[in-house]
């Protein structure tokens, strides 16, 4: 199991454990973490699973794809260099302990 910490906009931390291969979006939704919507179920059709990867983890989560970049243009909150669609980050052992920050709004 891989540990992920979600830091809400108000600073509240939620720590969950998810199976390898699960996306950061799916792990949040399955564990009822507020602040990730994931309306399209990971089809990269919406931008409601927006997260900011913690600085310490940026190198390990990799770069966002071109399509992801385009979909993020529709995000409700500010998009920064560390913005990702969390449906596009798949959990593997190298991400055990991952920390992501959640935006104020997803819609």
């Amino acid at each position: 199991m891989i540990k992920v910490t979600y830091v809400a906009h108000d600073g509240t931390e939620t720590v969950i454990e998810a199976e390898e291969g699960t996306s950061v979006m799916q792990a949040a939704v399955s564990n009822d973490v507020e602040g990730i919507v994931g309306e399209c179920g990971g089809s990269m059709m919406c931008a409601t699973c927006h997260c900011y990867v913690d600085e310490a983890w940026e190198a390990r989560t990799g770069q966002r794809s071109d399509d992801e970049d385009e979909m993020l243009e529709g995000a409700a909150s500010e998009v920064t260099e560390r913005s990702r669609l969390s449906c596009q980050i798949k959990l593997d052992p190298s991400l055990d302990g991952l920390v992501v920050h959640l935006p104020e709004e997803q819609l």
Partner: peptide, 10 residues
């Protein structure tokens, strides 16, 4: 073509 799709939505 996600880029055009998102521009169209706007």
């Amino acid at each position: 073509n996600a880029r055009t799709h998102m521009k169209a939505r706007r």
